[in-house]
Write a protein that binds this DNA or RNA. Structure first.
Length: 561
RNA sequence: UGGGGUAUAGCCAAGUUGGUAAGGCACCAGAUUUUGAUUCUGGCAUCCGUAGGUUCGAGUCCUGCUACCCCAGCCA
């Protein structure tokens, strides 16, 4: 993991805290608190890395804690995938893996403490009545008729709630604060509800479960978290966060500080859990790890590296203003990381055959080629060259446009790592389609021979027709058509109205034989075509599947003018 | 008719106590190049949502205004 660099408003707050000696030993402790109800995505990566890097920066620690307080939505499957994704990203929680459910006993005791302090009460109002009593954004709420029960009665009722004496929804425990607060979160928030549901961790031990607002500050407090970093929408919850901790004796000495930041938004991408789930459920994508998805597992399968994600997150910064990062920025860091790491091989994705008429019919030469011109440590390999080769269809024009310096009749180009060839004849079928190009090569121009006789404008990649292997190639594009008209309503996701129908194109590729040895997850640059990775799900030795990670950039703008 | 936030280039984003606008992406121009890639060089906010005010001096302080985001789950 690269050293955290740069600064942000959170570092400023912590620096200030340290100057004021607010925290014991100035030891910083952060945490990432996912709810195990879905897969992690790039937005979570920002949060994970922010928390982890912050702990590193201050020589502190980073906890992983599952916020599993709602068993109706949570599942063990998700805790496994989340752990795997965080590990892959490079954030290390060492031995500090926790669950909110680890603290259910303590949370119950703290609830008793609140009741005894007359700061919590059992409410018999129905969910509907509670909503009505809560008031609106513009008008105050009113006290529940059960608000003034005696401490003894509350203690007894709450204990009976725990003991399973009541049905779901019949009673809740609420904090007693202020029903007329302009902040709705302070209008006697519900802190416990009855849920006769099996929990992935505690089984059937409990039938009452704490609400997030109640559980989270206690979890942070118990673990000694110093800076509880969360997203902007929790800003309004901070007063209750502080209220709770201030009213619990155990947290008098040192209390965590909640700090909110703006979650990541990316152009041409929707990362809402609901949205992704809809795509998965409707079969629009191939599971949570579909390479078009910005889930951690999807990016991994797409061939994107943790380092690229780390560098990207470092560069976008952390702030409190909502913003949408240009996807081009993300792509920059993906290419930037793959550039020197991946071997550069040749593959033809849309072939047209060339016959080199002056090359011996049965001769095959094995040429030396560097794997990455900019990184010699990647070594060299042999590639076969013969009389028949493939080049890309788009690298030939019978009638060249202006400034076209690829192959056209009478023009000479370089075959990368091999020879200069000149096109002499265009062969067409009965329909007038070009099916073959006859060329001649110049033996003197062999690559590496030091030939300087003449220069050539174009260099093409190619593959030996007699000695190439075929594979499946999956070309990915953005899942969304554009940035407009995207319905990102979490409660009513309608991703279908803007889906790019061509986000996946499956074609056949012709690869140099070296690629036959590629293993699952191996990454390459296919010269002039882009970065590709061997698919981890569907690729086999006999049926290789390559996923496009990203195209190469290109400043080539074909024009006739 | 409430409360909480945010506004610095096309996009992110620095900007500690007011002293005269970092960096990255994108883009443009030029050089190098056996990937029209990479690399390299140069360019890219007389201006910090807006209108006033304080000051020798304001993105930074004060006042008004505007725009946008979040909040009425027994979700997190």
């Amino acid at each position: 993991m690269s050293e955290p660099t740069g600064t942000n408003f959170i570092n400023n707050i912590i620096d200030e805290d340290i100057r004021n000696n607010i925290y014991q030993n100035n030891k910083v402790l952060t945490r990432f608190p996912p709810e195990p109800n879905g897969y992690l995505h790039i937005g979570h990566a920002k949060s994970i890395l922010l928390n982890y890097n912050t702990s590193l920066r201050y020589n502190g620690k980073f906890n992983l804690r599952f916020d599993d307080t709602n068993p109706v939505k949570e599942d063990e499957e998700y805790v496994q995938s989340i752990k795997e994704d965080i590990k892959w990203l490079g954030a290390d929680w060492e031995d500090r893996l926790f669950f909110a459910s680890n603290y259910f006993d303590k949370m119950f005791l703290y609830a008793l403490e609140l009741i005894k302090k007359d700061l919590a009460y059992v409410d018999d109002l129905s969910p509907d009545e509670i909503r009505q009593y809560r008031g609106t954004l513009f008008s105050p709420g009113k006290n529940s008729p059960y608000r003034n029960r005696s401490i003894e009665e509350n203690l007894e009722l709450f204990t009976r709630m725990k003991d399973g004496k009541f049905i779901d929804g019949s009673k809740v425990l609420r904090a007693k604060i202020d029903m007329s607060s302009p902040n709705i979160n302070m209008r006697d928030p519900i802190i416990y509800r009855i849920l006769h549901t099996h929990h992935h961790n505690t089984g059937d031990t409990w039938c009452i479960y704490p609400m997030y607002d109640y559980a989270h500050p206690i979890e942070d407090g118990i673990e000694g978290i110093t800076h509880s970093i969360c997203t902007l929408e929790f800003e309004d919850h901070r007063p209750f966060y502080n209220w709770l901790l201030e009213n619990l004796d155990d947290f008098k000495i040192q209390r965590p500080k909640q700090i909110e930041f703006a979650k990541l938004q990316l152009s041409r991408t929707i990362i809402g859990k609901r949205f992704i789930k809809t795509l998965v459920d409707k079969g629009i994508v191939d599971g949570w790890d579909d390479p078009r998805l910005m889930t951690i597992s999807g990016m991994r399968r797409r061939g994107i590296t943790p380092e690229a994600i780390q560098n990207f997150c470092d560069e976008i910064g952390v702030a409190r203003s909502n913003s949408i990062v240009d996807i081009a920025m993300f792509e920059h860091f993906v290419r930037d990381d793959l550039k020197l790491k991946t071997p550069r091989l040749m593959a033809i994705l849309d072939p047209i055959k060339i016959v080199i008429t002056n090359y011996p019919e049965d001769k095959i030469e094995w040429l030396d080629m560097h794997n990455n011109q900019d990184n010699e440590s990647l070594g060299i390999r042999k590639i076969p060259f013969g009389r028949e080769i493939y080049i890309e269809k788009e690298d030939f024009m019978e009638v060249p446009i202006k400034k076209y310096f690829r192959l056209f009749p009478g023009n000479e180009v370089r075959l990368m790592g091999a020879y200069f060839i000149k096109c002499n004849e265009v062969i067409k079928n009965a329909n007038g389609e070009i099916i073959q190009l006859n060329c001649t090569y110049d033996p003197e121009t062999k690559s590496g021979s030091g030939f300087t006789g003449r220069k050539v404008k174009g260099t093409l990649h190619w593959v030996c027709a007699q000695n190439c292997i075929e594979s499946e190639i999956r070309l990915y594009d953005y899942l969304l058509n554009d940035n407009n008209d995207i319905d990102d309503d979490e409660d009513n996701p309608d991703p279908l109205n803007n889906i790019n129908p061509d986000s996946l194109k499956v074609i056949k590729g012709y690869l140099e034989p070296e690629l036959a040895n590629a293993n699952s997850g191996d990454k390459f640059q296919f010269v002039r075509n882009g970065y590709f990775v061997v698919d981890s799900k569907d690729s086999t030795k006999n049926n290789l599947v390559f996923n496009l990670t990203l195209n190469l950039k290109s400043s080539w703008k074909p024009s006739n003018s």
